[in-house]
Each structure stands twice: as C-alpha cells, then as structure tokens.
C-alpha cells in the first residue's frame, strides 16, 4: 500500500498537465480582469473564491456591464450545475468503502479537469485515496491562482509576442481532455461518448456553449441508462 505522502506526491505530479493548461487560461483571466477595471486583489479573489474558469470570465462581463447582483450570481451558479454529477460518478468508481473524511476540503478542487484526471487514474486501476485527490487539487489550484496573479500584474498583451507558445499552452486543455477520453475508452462507452459529442455540437450551435456542455453531458449519461 502506498503511503499518504507518496499518494500526495503522485497526485501532485498527475496535476502537471492540468497546471500547465490552467496557467495560460488564468493568466488571460488576470489580464482581462485588470483591463476591465478590477484591481489585482479583486482578480485574485475571484480565482480564490469561485475557482471556475468560464464562470469567472462571465462574472467579469456581468459585473462590468452592470447586471443586477442576484442575476449575476444565479447565472454563475447555473453555469456550474454540471459539477453535481462529478462527485457521485467519481465515488462510484472509487468504490463503496472509499474514505470521504476530508472531501469537504479536497472536493472544492473538483474541477472538470481534476475530475477527468482522477477518473482516468481510477479507470487505469489506481486505488482511490484522499491524499492523491489533495495533491491533484493543490497543483491545479496553485497554478490557477498563480496564473491569475501573474496575469493581473503583467497586464494586457504579455503573450502577444509569443503566439506559438500561447497557442501551445492554449491547446493543453483540449489535448488533456482527448488523452483522458482515450484512457477511459471502451467499446461499452462508445455510444455514450458519440451521443454526448453530437448533442454538445448541436446544442452549442442552437443555444450556446454552457447549455451545450450541460445537455451533452446529460444526453450521454441518459444513453448510458438506456443501454442494455
């Protein structure tokens, strides 16, 4: 059995691709926040408290456009409703006896990417451990916060002179999602994946990005229910 310390380090090292993908995104957020008139402290606080990329960019747009407070808050909350599905899906894979003693702390870091990485590790036969979840979450969260801070200090156009690096870093998250998809791919899950992808495209084009993600996810999960 691996020790808690090595599980923590293993989780931290597994967070590296996520951290490398998060940094440029949170950097962009820091830049956008200061360009929108927010201070470095305010930009950093949004990342510290909300810790959800798309929501934070939307928060900037809503707050700078003068949207009512409650409308802004409920819009942001609705955007992250999909996260309700992650915990149960992860714990189902972890097994009935998996400890959740410290879930109140590590689960705050259960973002899309952290969930995907953790699920991929479990699918590859790794045992669930809370220190691993802490390591995975801390690496991603630290990158998110440091990227925001650096971006807010740097201001606009900091990566403009390095378009190839900017593009490569920007592709890190799509690449990670694809690699995670490959790691959990099985014949049994193909209909789920195909339906989720097709509905995401259709709903994104017909309604919008956030609805596309939520509907795609639900359609895929419902396909799993209907499957014999």
């Amino acid at each position: 059995m691996i020790s808690q310390r090595s599980a923590l380090l293993s989780g931290f090292s597994a967070s590296l691709p996520i951290a490398m993908g998060y940094f440029p995104i949170s950097f962009s957020f820091g830049v956008a926040a200061t360009q929108g008139g927010f201070s470095v402290i305010e930009a950093f606080s949004l990342s510290l408290i909300i810790y959800a990329g798309a929501s934070q960019f939307l928060a900037l747009a809503l707050l700078t456009s003068g949207a009512p407070l409650l409308v802004s808050a409920f819009t942001l909350i609705a955007m992250n409703l999909r996260h309700v599905l992650y915990g149960p899906a992860l714990m189902r894979e972890a097994g009935k006896d998996a400890s959740t003693r410290y879930a109140w702390a590590w689960a705050f870091g259960l973002t899309d990417e952290v969930f995907g990485q953790a699920l991929g590790a479990l699918s590859c036969g790794q045992r669930f451990s809370e220190p691993y979840m802490f390591g995975l979450g801390i690496g991603a969260y630290a990158s998110w916060l440091s990227g925001t801070a650096v971006g807010a200090f740097a201001g606009g156009g900091a990566l403009d002179a390095w378009p190839a690096i900017s593009a490569g870093l920007g592709f890190m998250l799509p690449a990670l999602f694809l690699a995670l998809l490959l790691s959990i791919l099985s014949r049994r899950q193909l209909p789920v994946i195909a339906v989720a992808g097709a509905v995401t495209v259709a709903a994104t084009l017909a309604i919008g990005g956030t609805s596309g993600i939520l509907l795609g996810m639900l359609a895929g999960a419902v396909t799993g229910v209907l499957r014999r």
Binding site: A89, G116, L119, G216, L218, A221, T223
Partner: peptide, 8 residues
C-alpha cells in the same frame, strides 16, 4: 456513463 459523457 456520466464520466465518459462529461469528458467527451
């Protein structure tokens, strides 16, 4: 099915 659907 939620996990694979979410990642896809």
């Amino acid at each position: 099915a939620t996990g694979p659907a979410a990642i896809a």
